[in-house]
Simulated assay, not measured.
Amino acid sequence: MSETFVDLGFVTAPSGVVVLGMAGWIDYWREVGEPLSVRAGVAAKAGGGYLREEECEAVAVPAAADRPLAVRATTEPSMFDEEPTIATLEIELGLPWPEGVDGPVLLGDLPVDRSGMVIGDGVGLDAWTGQEDEPADGLGDVTFWGRYEEDAHARFGGERIPHPGGVDGVYGWLDVPMAEAVALEAEISTWRGGVWGQGVAGSVEPHVDYFRFRRAGLHHPLNVGAIEVGGCQVLGIDWCQGDHSVRHHGGRDWGQAFPVTLEADGTGGTVLRWTIPPYDEDEEG
Score class of each variant (00 low, 15 high):
Ala127Gln: 11
Thr129Glu: 00
Gly130Tyr: 02
Gly130Asp: 05
Gln131Lys: 10
Gln131Cys: 07
Gln131Met: 12
Glu132Gly: 03
Asp133Gln: 07
Asp133Ala: 12
Asp133His: 08
Glu134Ala: 14
Asp137Arg: 05
Asp137Thr: 11
Gly138Gln: 10
Leu139Lys: 11
Gly140Arg: 00
Gly140Met: 01
Asp141His: 04
Asp141Gln: 05
Val142Ala: 10
Phe144Ala: 01
Trp145Asn: 10
Trp145Cys: 09
Arg147Lys: 15
Ala152Met: 13
His153Glu: 13
Ala154Tyr: 10
Ala154Ser: 15
Gly157Ser: 06
Glu159Asp: 15
Arg160Val: 09
Ile161Thr: 01
Ile161Trp: 00
Ile161Leu: 02
His163Glu: 00
Pro164Ser: 06
Pro164Thr: 01
Gly165Leu: 05
Gly165Arg: 02
Gly166Ala: 09
Val167Thr: 14
Asp168Leu: 13
Tyr171Ile: 02
Trp173His: 06
Leu174Ser: 05
Leu174Gln: 04
Pro177Trp: 04
Met178Tyr: 12
Met178Gln: 14
Glu180Val: 15
Ala181Thr: 09
Ala181Ile: 04
Val182His: 07
Val182Phe: 09
Ala183Arg: 14
Leu184Glu: 13
Leu184His: 12
Glu185Thr: 10
Glu187Leu: 13
Ser189Arg: 01
Ser189Gln: 03
Thr190Pro: 02
Thr190Tyr: 06
Trp191Phe: 12
Arg192Lys: 14
Arg192His: 11
Gly193Arg: 07
Gly194Gln: 10
Trp196Tyr: 15
Val200Asp: 03
Gly202His: 01
Gly202Met: 03
Gly202Ser: 09
Val204Met: 01
Glu205Met: 09
Glu205Thr: 08
Glu205His: 08
Pro206Thr: 14
Pro206Gly: 09
Pro206Tyr: 04
His207Ile: 01
His207Met: 05
His207Gln: 06
Tyr210Pro: 01
Tyr210Arg: 05
Phe211Leu: 02
Phe211Ser: 01
Arg212Gln: 06
Arg212Ala: 03
Arg214Asp: 08
Ala216Tyr: 05
Ala216Arg: 05
Gly217Met: 04
Asn223Lys: 14
Ala226Ser: 10
Ala226Asp: 06
Ile227Cys: 03
Ile227Thr: 06
Ile227Pro: 00
Val229Ser: 06
Val229Gly: 02
Val229Leu: 08
Cys232Tyr: 06
Leu235Ala: 00
Gly236Asp: 07
Ile237Gly: 05
Ile237His: 10
Asp238Asn: 12
Asp238Arg: 02
Trp239Lys: 06
Gly242Ala: 11
Gly242Cys: 11
Gly242Asp: 12
Gly242Glu: 11
His244Lys: 07
Ser245Arg: 14
Ser245Tyr: 14
Val246Asn: 03
Val246Trp: 04
Val246Gly: 04
Arg247His: 10
Arg247Asn: 09
His249Phe: 11
Gly250Gln: 01
Gly250Pro: 00
Arg252Asn: 08
Asp253Gly: 14
Trp254Asn: 12
Trp254Arg: 14
Trp254His: 13
Gly255Gln: 07
Phe258Arg: 04
Val260Asp: 05
Thr261Cys: 12
Thr261Val: 15
Glu263Asp: 15
Glu263Arg: 11
Gly266Leu: 12
Gly266His: 13
Thr267Tyr: 09
Gly269Phe: 07
Thr270His: 01
Val271Pro: 00
Val271Ile: 08
Val271Cys: 03
